[in-house]
Write a protein that binds this DNA or RNA. Sequence first.
DNA 1: CATGTAATGATAACAACTTCTCATTATCCG
DNA 2: CGGATAATGAGAAGTTGTTATCATTACATG
Lengths: 131, 131
Amino acid sequence: MPPEARRTQQKDAIREAFASEGRPLSPQEALESAQSRVPGLGIATVYRAIKRFLTDGTLVAVELPGATTRYELAGLGHHHHFCCRRCDRVYDVEGCPPRVAELTPDGFELEAHEIVLRGVCSGCSQTAATT
Amino acid sequence: MPPEARRTQQKDAIREAFASEGRPLSPQEALESAQSRVPGLGIATVYRAIKRFLTDGTLVAVELPGATTRYELAGLGHHHHFCCRRCDRVYDVEGCPPRVAELTPDGFELEAHEIVLRGVCSGCSQTAATT
DNA sequence: CATGTAATGATAACAACTTCTCATTATCCG
DNA sequence: CGGATAATGAGAAGTTGTTATCATTACATG
């Protein structure tokens, strides 16, 4: 049996990072966010916490093309993602277009689908000017 | 100015691999396919050829969530991809569902989108039986 | 509050993929 | 054909992201 988990301010800070940011975070992003609460936090602890949160169902992995894996709180239901090419942040997007399943070639069995939108987020869009 | 390119049987074999397979290939897949034409072919040569083909517009990169980058012949037009979880091969799929752009959150600027279908390809589906 | 032990932080070690190095080979052009 | 040099193959070396090691710290319980 696995060792009993202890509650620590580090894990609390990491969990809180995902909850407060409200978008999928990479381990590095989670580290930076959580460090505002626990300054000395190390990246190894973030990886350990994420692994534990995946196991206990707190987080789920979000894989994106050409980017490192992000993680977000579980239980959000079916949704997709938007990647900003300026800040590299990933955002959740609601909804799902109709007829996605119709793309499936004959003889293929569709089990899941993912949609990734790309562009510039509202924050970066305002800051804009330069390309 | 860059050195003048020479035509070699290795590059021909690699280009032919992409043309004959008709689907996005990883460097490793391209190597295996091209080795049927040039047995001694090395992986370094495949990487060098791909880099050159990207530069001269012969190939384009296809990035997928949680998978190594694939490459395919350029000029295929807008399309999406299907990943088989059994054989890990990637296939092109025609078409594009309507209203994808409507998912974009307010204030965000959409520039592109990608759809990845997942499941089992027709080849693996027949071989099936086991899960 | 004393104690057993899970958790942490820093860093080394991994793993997967890609690029570099260099001696050798092949291509191209006069 | 002969020479200049681009291309190749094999393996070393880099990258980037993740996991393991280990001495130290901090939970949590009696």
